[in-house]
Each structure stands twice: as C-alpha cells, then as structure tokens.
Nucleic acid binder design. Structure first.
Length: 440
RNA sequence: GUGGGUGUAGCUCAGUCGGCAGAGCACCUGGUUGUGGUCCAGGGUGUCGGGGGUUCAAGUCCCCUCACUCACCCCA
C-alpha cells in the first residue's frame, strides 16, 4: 500500500455514474418507463452495443462521432476498425427488423432502453455515454398516421409518471415545411429547414440574415419563412393560421392534413404539454413527416429531452422492402442528470435492506444468520451485520445505510427477539414468523 | 474538431511578495464492552494533475503535456 503507485480516480468526462441512493431512483424510473410502454402493447428488444461500421454508416453521414472497437493487441494489418458502438437505437433497430423480417409480426411495435455512445465534446446535458428509451413502430409499405399521435401520447404518459418539472413536446411536420418552401419557390428546402432550426439559438433576425445572405432569399420569402416558423398552438387552429399565410402546394396540403389529424387526436391532453410548433425541424435528414422535440419549460437552453419523428424508409439500406416507421426517444440520462444537478432528485435508501440483523457475539452469530434467513424466507430484504462489533457500531451502520429496522436476536437463551424502528427509536419484542416491516 | 477557463485532502475551496501544506464538511478513534443521529476530546488521510525549466528555495514564475470545464458544431 505504501509506495504502491495508485491510479487517481478521476471521473471520465461525459460518462455519468450515480451513488446507490440515486441509482435506486433511476431504477424506479426505468420500471415506470417500461411499465408504460408495455401498457400500450410494445414489446422489448435488446441489440448488441456494437454494430458493423457499415451498418452504423448506412443512414446519414459519418458526422456522428462513432466510437470504434479494436483489440489492444490487434493483428498487424487488421487495424481497420470494422465495429463501432451504436450512437442511437434507431439504426440498430432498422438492422434488426431487416434481419428478422420473416419472424416479426407487423406492424412491429417495440421499445428499447439501452446505453448509446457518442464521441462528442461533453457539456451540460450532453454525454458521451447515455441511456435512451426508444419506442418505434415499423411496418412494410405504410404506417397508419394514428401512430404519429399514439407515440407522443405514450411519452406524455411516461414523462407525467416521472413527476419531472414542466415540459412541452413540440410537434411539427416536415411536409408542411417543405411544401411551404416549395410553394414559395425556394430551391433548397432542406437548407432552409436547417437555418430555421437555429431559431432558438440565434433569434429571428439571425435566421433572417442567414436566409438572405447564405441562401439568397428575397425579403418577402424570408419573411414568409419566419411567419411560418412563428406559428404555434395546440389546437387544429394551427392549420388555419398556416393557411392564412397564403402559400400553397400539394405537399403542403398533405402535411397540413397530417398535422391536423395528429393534433386532433391529441386534443384531450393537458393544455401546453403537446403543442404544434412550426419552428422545430430536427436536423436529421431522414425524417419525412411528423417530427417531435420535447424540452423542459424552465430550461429552454438545455437540450431536448425527447425527440423523434416519422421516416419514409429506415431499413431500406438493409432489405429490399420499403419499411417506413415512426419513433420517439426519451433522453433518460439527460433528464435524470439535470434533476440530479438541480437537487430535485430525492435520494432513496443507500441499501435495499429493510432489516439489519445484529450479531450479539461471535458465539451467537448462528442465531443472527438463522433470523435473517427466516425474514428473507418471508420476502423481507435482510442483511446480517458482518462481525460482532460493539452494538453502537452495528446500529450506526444501519442508520447510515438508511436501513429502517434493526433486528436483535436473543442475547441470552430464553429471551425474545426484538426489533428496533430506527425512525422512532422504539424497540419492541417481535416474532420472527409474523413480524412484517411497515409498508410491506 | 475550433476557441476560452480551471486543476491543492474523499468533497467544496483558501493559500499574500517565491520562504514549514491549510479550513469547513466527510472520515477514523475514544468518551459509551446491550443501542445510531446530538454533544465533547483527539486524529490529516496530500506524487499541490504530470514532465521539464528558472531559483539558495516553486502550490506560487516560465514552457510542454494531460485531464476537467464552458461556448461553437451537433444532438437524447
């Protein structure tokens, strides 16, 4: 120990970890998320952390910072990495569906809660390893629009069940944006979408400048683009507001029909929780219809806590079938870490134990072990203290670990068992075969 | 990847002009060999991120490097 070289334990940036009393809260969250997903009939899958690089790069550009995998003692000449850690769950899901196409029942509705990795520069709310809770529907040829409304409804229910600070899920439709821009005669709708996406960062005037200088829009066009982006609301009145802007195109009509349908389906949700916002676009270019982006109301600068959308054909690079889908992802780590940082997570117990059984003395250790076994046999989480320390020390251990009851086996033959309620300090005789902790 | 900031005890941090390494919290021991929290008395647990340089002397000044952190890009 003395002159041994020690490795300084430093946190690795972007790789969060929690103390037991916080982790236990996260586990409860995961339980609730899973329960809600399953209540809607979605099934669970898990895919490997690793995918072939060509799978990871099949959709979108290589802009995602993929962590590649190779052995420390790699074969010479075999240094070209062929494997990478997945950076989201959508691409692995697409591969999975293509691979197991014949064995799945469609529409395939699945949820998937796993860690993902992105080699980006960490910041508040941006991690290099984090957990996403994805929920997607995929179906050959076409996915009923009904799912575009069901997914935000499910996520709404999940977020509500977590009891987190106020948030809003914003909804938009790419066809509305693209159709509107086409109606305006703009040559590069995707570039306009990317510019509008910066609205909350650089403001309306910043976007106007971007549209005029970089994309060469005339003032009238730029004004119309910004007018559309300012439309917001939860009812179908949104559709009328857009119609009033006097732009038309076939794609725009389709988009407005879809957006109107989704909003109508969600009209019963609490005011302000799910609203249309024509300024959100999502940078990812594979979204083709409905798009979602959820944020905390109190921290608008914090990244999105849930996001997703509809894609026309996600698995097309893996199978000769058209497989459109719609999906939504909950950024569990991003939400949870923020609440931890804000001190809004009420820590749980430091131990799952309900009872600590005291060891009266070395020669009575067997009694303690037997008492603990009896309690466990009746489903009570119980641990035995590890050595015959002074009683004060044993009780102090229970106190510090947040174990609510301390069990005393007899210290002399013929005496009864006793149990101490740590919160009240009260200690009473108790029967091993019938006693149960409060709230069990 | 680009630019700024910060690295001292387990944690939060102080450390003057270059002159013996510090505080609070946490932790350990005892007061209390059958009872926790409170209280009292003790205890410093450290490669001052790492390497090099200047100097009689470096936590302090200079160079390099690493890590963390903030902003940009991008995103859950």
């Amino acid at each position: 120990m003395s002159d041994q070289q020690i490795v300084r334990p430093v946190p690795i940036s972007g790789f969060p970890e929690w103390l037991p009393e916080v982790r236990t809260v996260e586990l409860h969250w995961l339980d609730r998320i899973r329960a809600t997903f399953e209540r809607y009939g979605f099934c669970s899958i898990e895919t490997p952390s690793v995918e072939a690089l060509e799978v990871l790069q099949a959709k979108g550009e290589t802009s995602q910072e993929v962590y590649t995998l190779h052995r420390l003692q790699g074969e010479p000449g075999d240094d070209a990495a062929r494997l990478g850690l997945h950076f989201d769950l959508t691409v692995p899901f697409a591969r999975y569906v293509a691979q197991h196409f014949n064995d799945l029942v469609f529409p395939f509705k699945r949820y998937q809660t796993q860690r993902v990795w992105r080699g980006e520069r960490p910041q508040e709310g941006r991690f290099r390893e984090f957990t996403q809770c994805d929920i997607d529907v995929i179906n050959p040829d076409q996915v009923p629009l009904h799912f575009d409304a069901e997914l935000p409804r499910i996520v709404h229910e999940v977020l509500t069940s977590l009891g987190i600070p106020p948030w809003t899920i914003n909804i938009n439709n790419r066809k509305v944006l693209q159709g509107f821009y086409e109606g305006l005669g703009l040559p590069d709708p995707l570039a306009v979408i990317r510019a509008v996406d910066k609205l909350d960062k650089i403001g309306a005037e910043g976007v106007r400048r971007l549209l005029a200088d970089d994309l060469k829009l005339d003032p009238g066009q730029a004004g119309a683009v910004l007018d559309l982006a300012s439309v917001r609301g939860s009812g179908t009145g949104v559709v009328d507001d857009i119609a009033k802007l006097g732009v038309s195109s076939p794609l725009l009509s389709t988009g407005l029909d879809e957006l109107g349908f989704v909003l109508e389906e969600l009209a019963d949700l609490p005011e302000g929780t799910v609203v249309a916002d024509l300024s959100i676009a999502r940078g990812l270019d594979y979204y083709t219809g409905t798009v979602y982006e959820g944020k905390f109301t109190d921290w608008p600068g914090y990244g999105s806590i849930t996001a997703g959308g509809r894609y026309a054909d996600l698995a097309g690079s893996f199978i000769r079938r058209e497989l459109p889908g719609v999906g939504l992802s909950i950024g569990l780590t991003r939400i949870f870490a923020k609440l931890v940082a804000e001190g809004l997570i009420e820590p749980g117990a430091k131990s799952p134990s309900r009872v600590l059984v005291v060891v009266p003395s070395d020669d009575r250790r067997a009694d303690a072990v037997a008492a603990a076994a009896a309690l466990r046999g009746r489903g009570v989480n119980t641990e035995t203290y590890h050595q015959a320390d002074k009683l004060g020390k044993q009780i102090r251990y229970a106190s510090r670990k947040g174990i609510p009851y301390v069990w005393f086996p007899p210290f002399e033959d013929g005496r009864p068992h006793e149990v101490k309620d740590m919160a009240s300090g009260e200690q009473t005789e108790a029967d091993l075969m019938t006693w149960t902790p409060a709230g069990a």
